[in-house]
Design a protein around this nucleic acid. Structure first.
Length: 474
RNA sequence: GGUCCCUUCGUCUAGUGGUUAGGACACCAGGUUUUCAUCCUGGCAACACGGGUUCGACUCCCGUAGGGAUCACCA
C-alpha cells in the first residue's frame, strides 16, 4: 500500500516550490490509491511561526490536496506533530545508545565551531567524527546526542534522479537529539516515516547530500528504507537560484486571492517539471492523478514563469460553465454591483468570461455596467479616426444612432442590423461610427462587443447614455 | 573549496543512434465589419563547448565550461 507524506515545518507560508513537493507526493498516493499524510515537523521552536500550521493546512485545502491522516484529521499512526512524539524519539534514541551507535557529545557548540574553523584553515573538509571521543559519559539529555556513524560507500536508486552514489567521506556523526531535547530532522523523519509506514519519501533536492547519512542510520536502526524520490528545484524567474521566501516568492494563497483557480495552480505546478510525454499542456486534476508518474519528473530545475500561469488561468476560466464561474467570482464584483440585479450580473459575467485572465480582472472589465461612466471627450479626440472629425459631426452621428436605436428590438442581432443600416445611411466606416458609439456608452478604453453590451444595458439605459454623451459634448 | 546533481528555442518542454529537432508560453504579423480580450492562421527562435565511439550522433563515452544543491544543536 502506497503511503506518501508531506512534512513541512510550520515556519511560514507555502510557496510554489513547497506546494509542488506536496502536490507530487499527493499525486503518487492518489495515483496508487494509497494514502497521503500530513506531518508537522515542528522541532525547531526558534523558527516556528505563530499561525503557520493553520496557514499550511489552509493552503493544502485551498488546492484540494486532501490528506488522509494529519494533525487536524487524526489517523492510526499519530500523533502527526513531531513535538507530540518526543517520547517516541527518546525510545528510539535509547535503542541506538544501547547498541553503541549513539553517544553524548562532550563538546560545547563553541568547541565544535573551533574544530570546524581549524579544518577550514587547513583546507580540509570538516568531519565531526575525526574528533569523536574514545570514551564518553552516559548521555544525560542536556547535551546533544550524536550518531556514531559507520563510514562507507553507498549506491542507491532515486525514482527521479536515477542511480546515485557517494563515498565514505560524506558520512559523519550528525546530531540526533539537540540539547533542548528535540530531535533533529535527520533523526525524527526517519523514525516517523518508518512508524507511519511511509513507502515513498518525496522531497526537495536539498536533502540529496544528506541521504548517505540517512542510509547509514537506517542500517544502525535495522530498518528498511523507503523508496526515495528527489524533486528538482523550482527556480526564481531569473533562473539563478532556488525559489525562496526570502527572495519574495509568493504565498500560494495569495494566488488564490487574486483569482487564480485552484485547478490552474495544480496543473501549472505539476507541469513545472513533469509532463506525460504527449503534447498536452493543460491537465485536469483527474488527468493528473491518472497519468502522473515519478519517472517522468524532470531532473533539472525549472523556472517559475508567471506569464504562463496567467495564460493557463485564462484557459481554465473559459472552460468553466457560467454557473461555476458565477459561484467563484462572488467575492470579486466591484462594490457598485452590490445592488445590481442577479440576472443582469449573470449576463455581464457571461460577456466578461472571454476576457478574464484572473478573477480579479472582473471589476476593471465591468464597471460601466454598474455605474454611470464619466464622459471624457479626450478619448474621442485622441482616437485616430474620430480625432479627425469635428465635434458637431460627432454629435450628429450620435443623434442619428439614438434615433435609429429608438425603434429597434433590443437584442444583439437586431441592434447589429440597425447599426449596419446606419453605416450605409451615414457613409461612415465601422471604425469611426462604432468606436464613437462605444465610447458614448462605456467611456472605457476597451469593452465587449457593442451589440451585446447594448442588449444587456437595455434600450432605455443605452439611449440615456447616448443622450448624456450628446449633452456633455455640446 | 570538497562532495553530489544538472545542461534542447528567451521560458516550460518532446525526443532514448538515422526527425525538415515537435508542442506550448512569450514576442511579431495577418484575419474574425470598432476597441481590449478570446479564437484562427502564419512567423521568429534551441541541441553549452571540445574530443572520441559509430556508416551515422541532440541521443553513448571522456573532458571543459556554466548552473544548482549541500557542507548547522534548520528543515
Amino acid at each position: 500500500m502506497t503511503r506518501t507524506r508531506f512534512a513541512p515545518s510550520p515556519t511560514g507560508y507555502l510557496h510554489v516550490g513547497g506546494i509542488r513537493t506536496a502536490l507530487f507526493a499527493w499525486l503518487v498516493a492518489r495515483h496508487d490509491n494509497g494514502q497521503f499524510i500530513l506531518r508537522l515537523e515542528d522541532t525547531d521552536k526558534n523558527r516556528e511561526v505563530e499561525g503557520s500550521a493553520q496557514h499550511l493546512t489552509d493552503s493544502l485545502n485551498a488546492l484540494g490536496l486532501n490528506y488522509d491522516e494529519g494533525p487536524d484529521v487524526g489517523g492510526d499512526s499519530g500523533p502527526y506533530r513531531q513535538s507530540d512524539r518526543l517520547d517516541i524519539y527518546r525510545e528510539w534514541a535509547q535503542k541506538l545508545i544501547d547498541s553503541g551507535r549513539a553517544y553524548a557529545d562532550p563538546y560545547t557548540a563553541e568547541e565544535v565551531q573551533k574544530f570546524r574553523e581549524q579544518a577550514q584553515a587547513d583546507k580540509q573538509p570538516f568531519l565531526y567524527r575525526n574528533h569523536r571521543p574514545d570514551t564518553t559519559e552516559p548521555w544525560d539529555g542536556k547535551t546533544p546526542l550524536r550518531f556514531k556513524s559507520d563510514p562507507k560507500s553507498y549506491e542507491w536508486h532515486d525514482e527521479v534522479m536515477g542511480n546515485l552514489h557517494s563515498g565514505p567521506e560524506v558520512i559523519d556523526d550528525f546530531i540526533l537529539v539537540k540539547s533542548d531535547g528535540y530531535p533533529t530532522y535527520n533523526f525524527a523523519h526517519i523514525v516517523d516515516d518508518h512508524l507511519m509506514g511511509v513507502t515513498h519519501v518525496i522531497r526537495g533536492q536539498e536533502f540529496i547530500s544528506s541521504l548517505p547519512n540517512y542510509l547509514n542510520l537506517y542500517e544502525a536502526l535495522g530498518i528498511e528504507h523507503p523508496v526515495f524520490a528527489t524533486m528538482p528545484p523550482v527556480m526564481n524567474d531569473q533562473g539563478n537560484k532556488k525559489l525562496s521566501k526570502r527572495d519574495g516568492a509568493k504565498d500560494v494563497l495569495d494566488y488564490i486571492k487574486e483569482g487564480y483557480l485552484p485547478e490552474t495552480l495544480i496543473s501549472f505546478i505539476a507541469t513545472l517539471g513533469w509532463n506525460d510525454g504527449t503534447e498536452q499542456e493543460v491537465f485536469t486534476r483527474d488527468e493528473l492523478i491518472a497519468k502522473f508518474s515519478l519517472d517522468r519528473v524532470q531532473k533539472s530545475g525549472a523556472r517559475f514563469d508567471e506569464k504562463r500561469l496567467l495564460w493557463m488561468n485564462g484557459q481554465f476560466i473559459r472552460q468553466l460553465s457560467l454557473d461555476d464561474l458565477w459561484d467563484r467570482v462572488a467575492e470579486f464584483w466591484p462594490d457598485t454591483a452590490d445592488s445590481a440585479d442577479h440576472e443582469f450580473k449573470r449576463q455581464v459575467l457571461a460577456l466578461a468570461q472571454d476576457r478574464m485572465k484572473i478573477l480579479h480582472d472582473l471589476p476593471a472589465l465591468t464597471t460601466y455596467f454598474f455605474a454611470e461612466p464619466t464622459p471624457n471627450w479626450q478619448m474621442i479626440d485622441d482616437n485616430k479616426q474620430l480625432g479627425k472629425l469635428e465635434r458637431t459631426k460627432h454629435l450628429e452621428l450620435l443623434d442619428k444612432a439614438k434615433t435609429a436605436l429608438e425603434s429597434t428590438d433590443f437584442n444583439a442581432e437586431a441592434i447589429q442590423s440597425t447599426l449596419n443600416d446606419l453605416l450605409e445611411q451615414t457613409g461612415e466606416k465601422p471604425g469611426t461610427l462604432f468606436s464613437l458609439i462605444r465610447f458614448a456608452i462605456t467611456w472605457a478604453p476597451f469593452s465587449p462587443a457593442l451589440p451585446e453590451t447594448m442588449e444587456i444595458l437595455g434600450r432605455e439605459h443605452t439611449l440615456e447614455r447616448i443622450q448624456s454623451a450628446i449633452d456633455s459634448g455640446r
